[in-house]
Design a protein around this nucleic acid. Structure first.
Length: 821
RNA sequence: GCCGAAGUGGCGGAACUGGCAGACGCGCGCGACUCAAACUCGCGUUCCCUUGAGGAUUGUGGGUUCGAUUCCCACCUUCGGCACCA
């Protein structure tokens, strides 16, 4: 048999057979350990692009590896099918978003199948299906009933391009642009639905139960932005409470003025008649500025004195109240105590407006003078000018760990002047969207009864088909003549529906639960399936969702736990991120740049196995990198050479001396390394090890190995090793060439034999002063003494030793001898 | 400014306990095959020079060590995130 390798033919043949046989169906099997492998679901944008392949194909290889290891593996896929592009296509081209979406899904589904994945298609979910979003809506209602969803009127981020509000997480970069369309967002005052993500701030930064990349953990930790400190109650001269949050209560004695955000509620009250005009003007300017864009960091501080004064509760000192836009209404209380001696921003402000600066922390050997200090001092030291606390040590530590803070907070609490407090940058999740193509928020507003959820029996609240998709800034559902009219579920009187839809991140927060039982109608998922499959054992996807999807889904599970829906509170035990495949020019792939690589064309040209293995091989998976259209020839050649190895007749007669021993050692060493690399989700070295091993196999064959009775076993093991990465060629060679029983993908992953890995001889490295001088082949079990003797006498080292005193000889058994002179 | 990741040949990258730097692949060079080319196969390929039992070399500079890509300190560059967060 010496058939040519024809990937096109064998790939479609096996894909069909695998599907017909249901080879990859994942069913509960209590006798086997489960493994839930999950990759982030794609948005059905029309075509599967290289990024999809990069995310899915190596993840599929990893899932196949776990399957061969004996795990019952579920590797599902679905579509994140709600979202703006569908609606924009409707506006631009007059196609219904549903039609556009489902056509794309159909296309992408067949593209996905050409990849040769082990996806169990019976478990597919589509988030825009009513049978799916019925449960998205049900979850919303559960959150509402448990006080985790609420409605609030507040200034919110609005994307003028997408014509909808956004969550804080979906506003990116220093120009505060929309995550989807990159248009800078503006502020609007609107009443919107929020989820109480802030309830879980502390839990969200606890990663003790999960194995996630440090990068993601850091991003989420920074996003939550926990600060420890104290709330301190100042009084205005009128006697109103003016509470501030501070991380530095130890510097309270150095507070020489206060600053309110321009929007702060007390501004009007504290402002004196003389200052009214200036304050009013500043406020107007500040509000305008927020509309355009709030201040860059390095600009000069601006602000206005209100004319009012506050009393510092720790020492009774009267200090002026200013307003300035460097204080944000959205954080803490929208008001600060300013300690210019020990805060850079307050310092800059004080110098700008010639306000008093009183140092209250001083390192030993220094003597600060508020009038001459060149900058704020933020380091450790001893408290001064602070009454009974003088001499208390202040360190660099945050919160209670810092002795100065600890003592002052205790004292504040005892005196009733303030209390320990923690502040977060995390905001509640704004989920209302003024768009059509999303899950309707299942709430009804009645003049008498207020907001009530749609009764369970009326779910899903179905999206009507007959709407106009005009980008008006109002939800298209609102403009529908009848859809919003309904009756109040409480009193039965005429009422209206919520016409906004949900953020699509709501849909993707729980999709991994729907795969468990996509057709289940007694609840969002079948508890039996949940108990068996959850949690996700390995989740793979891009890092761009670190502070969006990956945070939302963790929030979701913590909320589900508190609502009694599930027990687990971490959805994904292990997370690994892939990088991005860039264009050959090193830039992000985009149609407008013309540097995209179409996976369909690659598959036509090379076959799926070559594309799969090249994606695993060409870069570190977690980093990604530029595509190289020449490089793919390397994995193509590898597979052709694999084919030749199995189909060309044996050479020579008998294996030469040591050939079989050497090739078995190579085989098992490679197996050992590949097993480890799969476990560690490091794909590039898997392929390079397989290539290297093939080179050795070719060599061994040339030296007669193919005439050994052991050769067949070696060939079988090699096929098992390549099977997860290149499933088609492995199956073809396994069944059609070796004539083994179908299917290779139900075979067991081989185990590395450590005895066969052992070597009898090693190359002893001889160094003189750490420099390589010789290599000598010696028995592996050579004694220290013999190794030393051999090294000292070695021809490479001897000349360097002549006439020198040998000070020391380091012998590392099995590795090297270092002679120090 | 703060937080994080990464810097190794012409390129992607490897080196998994501190012990042979450059595995594997691309590219390139030479050779075989061919009328010729492509494919394929074989050999070579870190750099430098005064070409040898030579020297240098993992972003830069220091340190620890018999020995450092690996550990420590300082700095530089690139990328990502946050950004007046009190």
């Amino acid at each position: 048999m010496s058939k040519e390798y024809n990937p096109k033919e064998i790939e479609s043949k096996w894909q069909k057979k695998w599907e017909d046989d249901g080879l990859y169906q994942a069913n509960i099997d209590e006798s086997r350990k489960k493994f839930y492998a999950l990759t982030m679901l794609p948005y059905p944008s029309g075509d599967l692009h290289t990024g999809h392949w990069y995310a899915i194909a190596p993840s599929d290889a990893r899932a196949r590896f776990k399957r061969m290891q004996g795990y019952n593996v579920m590797f599902p896929i679905g579509f994140d099918a709600f979202g703006l592009p569908a609606e924009n296509a409707a506006i631009a081209r007059g196609i219904h978003p549903r039609e556009w979406t489902y056509k794309n899904i159909q296309n992408m589904r067949s593209q996905l199948k050409r990849m040769g994945t082990m996806v169990d298609w019976r478990r597919e979910m589509i988030s825009s299906d009513p049978k799916y979003y019925r449960w998205t809506q049900w979850f919303f209602i559960q959150l509402f009933k448990h006080d985790l969803a609420y409605r609030k009127y507040s200034p919110v981020d609005w994307c003028p391009q997408c014509n909808t509000t956004l969550a804080r997480e979906q506003v990116h970069g220093d120009d505060r642009h929309c995550e989807r369309c990159s248009t800078p967002v503006i502020k609007k005052d609107l009443e919107q639905w929020f989820f109480k993500t802030t309830n879980y701030a502390d839990e969200l930064i606890d990663f003790s139960q999960i194995d996630w990349p440090d990068r993601v953990k850091t991003l989420q930790t920074n996003w939550v932005g926990r600060s420890e400190g104290a709330d301190v109650v100042f009084k205005t001269e009128d006697g109103d409470d003016l509470t501030v949050f501070t991380t530095r209560p130890d510097t309270l004695w150095g507070a020489t003025f206060m600053v309110l955000a321009p929007e702060h509620l007390l501004v009007d009250k504290v402002t004196t008649d003389e200052q009214k005009e200036a304050v009013g003007k500043y406020r107007e300017d500040a509000i305008l500025k927020t509309e355009i864009q709030r201040a860059s960091v390095d600009k000069e501080k601006t602000g206005v004195f209100t004319g009012g004064y506050a009393i510092n509760p720790v020492n009774g000192v009267r200090i002026p109240i200013w307003i300035a836009d460097y204080v944000m209404m959205g954080y803490g209380f929208g008001a600060i105590m300013a300690v210019p001696a020990h805060d850079e921003r307050d310092f800059a402000f004080a110098r700008q407006f010639e306000l008093e600066i009183i140092p209250v922390i001083q390192p030993e050997g220094e003597s600060f003078d508020g009038k001459t200090m060149p900058e704020a001092y933020v380091g450790p030291g001893l408290m001064i000018n602070s009454a009974q606390f003088n001499g208390t040590a202040v360190t660099d530590d945050k919160g209670r760990k810092n002795p100065g803070l600890d003592k002052v907070i205790d004292w504040l609490e005892k005196e009733g002047l303030g209390k320990e407090a923690i502040s977060y940058k995390l905001r509640d999740w704004l989920i209302s969207r003024q768009r059509y193509w999303g899950a309707p928020i299942p709430m009804i507003y009645c003049e008498d009864c207020g907001w009530n959820p749609v009764p369970d029996k009326d779910l899903p609240v179905v999206l009507p088909d007959d709407v106009e998709w005009l980008p008006t800034g109002e939800s298209p559902l609102k403009l529908h003549p009848t859809w919003k009219d309904t009756i109040c579920p409480k009193c039965g009187k005429a009422a209206i529906r919520e016409t906004d839809t949900m953020d699509t991140f709501m849909c993707s927060s729980w999709y991994h639960l729907r795969y468990l039982s996509p057709d289940y109608d007694q609840g969002p998922f079948d508890p039996k399936e949940y108990d068996y499959w959850m949690p996700v054992d390995l989740y793979t996807g891009g890092i761009e969702h670190a502070t969006m999807h990956l945070m939302y889904t963790r929030f979701f599970h913590k909320a589900l736990r508190d609502m009694g829906v599930t027990e687990g509170h971490e959805p994904m035990t292990m997370l690994r991120n892939q990088g991005m495949v860039l264009g050959e020019d090193g830039e992000k792939m985009s149609k407008s740049r013309g540097n995209t690589v179409a996976p369909d064309e690659l598959v036509n040209k090379y076959g799926a196995d070559t594309v799969r293995s090249y994606l695993m091989f060409f870069a570190r998976w977690d980093l990604g990198g530029p595509w190289n259209s020449q490089g793919i020839g390397g994995t193509e050649r590898w597979l052709y050479r694999v084919w030749t190895l199995y189909t060309d007749p044996a050479e020579g007669s008998k294996p030469a001396d040591g050939v079989m021993r050497d090739i078995k050692r190579d085989l098992h060493t490679a197996l050992n390394n590949i097993t480890r690399d799969y476990e560690q989700v490091e794909f590039n070295t898997i392929i390079s090890t397989l290539m290297e091993l093939l080179n050795n196999l070719v060599l061994a064959k040339r030296n007669g190995a193919a005439n050994s009775p052991e050769w067949r076993g070696i060939l079988e093991t090699y096929l098992l090793m390549i099977a997860p990465a290149v499933p088609h060629i492995a199956e073809e060679l396994w069944t059609e060439v070796l004539g083994n029983e179908y299917s290779i993908h139900t075979q067991k992953w081989p185990e590395a034999d450590t005895e066969l890995m052992a070597v009898e001889e090693i190359t002893l490295i001889v160094q003189v002063n750490g420099k390589l001088r010789d290599r000598i082949v010696v028995p592996v079990d050579i004694t220290r003494e013999d190794a030393e003797k051999t090294a000292l006498a070695s021809p490479g080292a001897a000349p360097y030793l002549e006439g020198k005193d040998i000070r020391k000889v380091i012998v590392v058994p099995g590795r090297l001898v270092n002679i120090v002179i």
